[in-house]
Amino acid sequence: MEKNYEDIPGTYVFDADRSREGYHLNMFCISMRQANNRKAMKEDPEAYLAKYPMTEEQRQAVRDRDWNRLLELGGNIYYTSKLAAFDGITFQDLAAMMTGVSREEYRDMMLNGGRSIEGNRYKSEWEKS
């Protein structure tokens, strides 16, 4: 299957392959919507994580809260944002963290019209700079 979207920089398209790889990770993340699961996760994170047959890499990325790595390993942002919410992180703050800037810098960028499309279409454009 040709994936003509794989050369978009800074983007993990959540396709059927990533959905398959990330299934248990995403089901873990969405379980954080329920109060009893949040309680169990707070009390004993390792025991709670062990309930979901994720790969060790995925488990480590959860421990590290490595938000971009979670996407690379099949997580989807609508799921990982539920884990972020468990940590008390808002969607916009999560976006700031994933892009490596402060909350204020990110907010200012959005107020100034957002990230420009110019220079952000192809991975090759990022490699040059």
């Binding site: 983007t11 971009n68 942002i77 944002s81 892009t99 959005m110 957002g114 990230r115 499309i117 952000n120």
Partner: peptide, 17 residues
């Protein structure tokens, strides 16, 4: 309309498009 919520390109907006 245009928006990206994930990864390093989050915050993308393309008003002309």
């Amino acid at each position: 309309m245009s928006h990206q919520l994930q990864a390093e390109r989050a915050g993308l907006i393309n008003a002309d498009w």
